[in-house]
């Protein structure tokens, strides 16, 4: 799916298992927290959890604004 989108629009893939993302052909990749809650962490307070989610989404926006030529994993 990610490849088909990338043919037309820039896309950032947020997913927990980076190698799978690499295998399916994503180019901009953000590693996330856990499979059942990629953008959350139920062990944290709702405020902390949202802050964590925001950090990851900001990282995704930064990835979209970064020129790349090959598969890149953005960890900060």
């Amino acid at each position: 799916m990610v490849k088909e989108i990338e043919r037309e629009l820039p896309v950032v893939h947020m997913c927990t298992i980076v190698p799978i993302s690499q295998t399916v052909g994503a180019n901009r990749i953000i590693p996330t927290i856990a499979i059942p809650h990629p953008l959350g962490d139920p062990s944290k307070t709702p405020e902390e959890e949202k802050a964590l989610r925001r950090k990851l989404v900001e990282r995704a926006l930064k990835a979209l604004q970064t020129e790349i030529t090959e598969q890149t994993v953005f960890t900060e």
Partner: peptide
């Protein structure tokens, strides 16, 4: 708890 292990997954 933590990041899933790819082999296991």
């Amino acid at each position: 708890n933590g990041l899933a292990d790819l082999d296991s997954l």
